[in-house]
Amino acid sequence: MREKEHIITALAGFRRKNKFSYSVFQERGLHPSDDELCSGLQALLNDCSDQLIVAVNSGVDEKKLAKILKSNLSNIDAANYDTEERELICDYFYELSQIVVVDIKSDLNNWLYGVILGTLLKITSILKRSDKALYTLEQSCTGCKIPLKTAILSRNKGIPDHSWHVIRCNNCDEYNLLSVGEGVSEYRFENYQSIEALPKSAYTKDEACVRLEQIRYFRKR
């Protein structure tokens, strides 16, 4: 029940977000797309999130959730968008898939690159080291309370925990402080973005918390 509430909270947060704001394009180093195009995509993604909220509330299984995502993705004609726009669309569908915990990476590859190239990329990825997580760290967002997830991909003894990370929740944009712990050699952010790394050689936890509050104050103004 608790997990269901977290999923619905995250989907509602995704829906509220201005997914094609000037700052979104600026962070990716891109010029903003046409307003009409952005409004249309915003509406399509919001409709998809609404469908997922209804489905999650109804208790449907992973296959039906994946079908909703794939159906909405297929309704978007990739030929109408440039490469950067297609990548942004894929990022948002991937974010939705992460929220509802279904795997549509192959479908996203095929939509982004075309079936032939998408298949080749899938074959190539199989030859590479698996990025399957050993386990997942979770800490509650101080804003919306959903679990912020860090996938631990590999560990090695003797590796120190070098940094505090100031991170931003994808759901509510709240800033949080993260430490992955010792012995972690590779990890992946799941539902948040890293904003700033603070070396532990230069920052105590109290000093890192002060920096966190500075970022909260200045970036939310």
Rank of each mutant, 00 (worst) to 15 (best):
L127Q: 11
E27P: 00
D161I: 08
T119E: 11
S163D: 14
S125G: 05
Q51E: 12
E62L: 09
I7K: 15
D82R: 05
A12Y: 08
S194F: 07
A66H: 03
R188N: 13
F189D: 06
R168W: 02
E5S: 09
A66D: 01
E213G: 01
R221M: 15
T124S: 07
N57Y: 01
S163R: 10
E174R: 09
S201P: 00
L148Q: 02
Y203E: 09
I195G: 01
R216D: 08
S74W: 04
K4C: 10
N80D: 14
V56M: 04
F93Y: 15
C141D: 07
N171V: 15
L178Y: 07
N109W: 00
K157I: 10
R188C: 10
P199V: 09
Y203D: 10
N46Y: 03
S49L: 03
N75W: 03
Y192T: 06
T204C: 11
L177V: 14
L45A: 05
A78G: 08
I8Q: 09
Y187V: 06
V180Y: 02
Y135T: 02
K205D: 13
V24S: 07
A202H: 14
K19R: 14
I104R: 00
L178E: 08
T150S: 15
A133Q: 15
S33T: 09
K132W: 05
E87M: 11
L96D: 09
V166S: 03
V24F: 05
E95Q: 13
V184G: 02
G158Q: 09
K128C: 04
L148V: 03
L45T: 04
T136V: 13
K19F: 00
T136R: 11
L88C: 06
L137M: 11
C169S: 04
V115M: 11
L178C: 07
S49P: 02
F25D: 08
Y113V: 00
D91I: 02
S140Y: 08
V210C: 06
E5N: 15
T142N: 14
Y94R: 15
G114H: 02
L212H: 06
R2M: 11
S130P: 00
R188V: 03
S74C: 05
C141R: 02
Y135N: 08
D206P: 06
K132R: 14
W164K: 04
R168M: 09
K220M: 05
L212N: 06
L69P: 00
L112T: 00
E5R: 14
S58N: 13
A66C: 04
M1L: 11
K205G: 07
Y192D: 12
L41E: 08
V101N: 15
S130Y: 04
A55L: 07
V102E: 02
I116P: 00
E85H: 03
D34W: 00
K220C: 05
R168K: 13
P147N: 10
V56L: 06
N80E: 11
L127M: 11
V101G: 03
K220S: 13
Y113K: 05
N171E: 05
K157A: 10
K145F: 08
V24N: 12
V180G: 02
A12W: 13
R2N: 14
I7N: 02
L108D: 00
Q26C: 10
A10D: 02
A78N: 06
S163E: 12
L108N: 00
P32I: 06
N176L: 07
N170Q: 11
K63T: 15
Y22C: 09
E95T: 07
I99Y: 07
N171W: 01
E5D: 15
V60L: 09
S185C: 09
N110D: 10
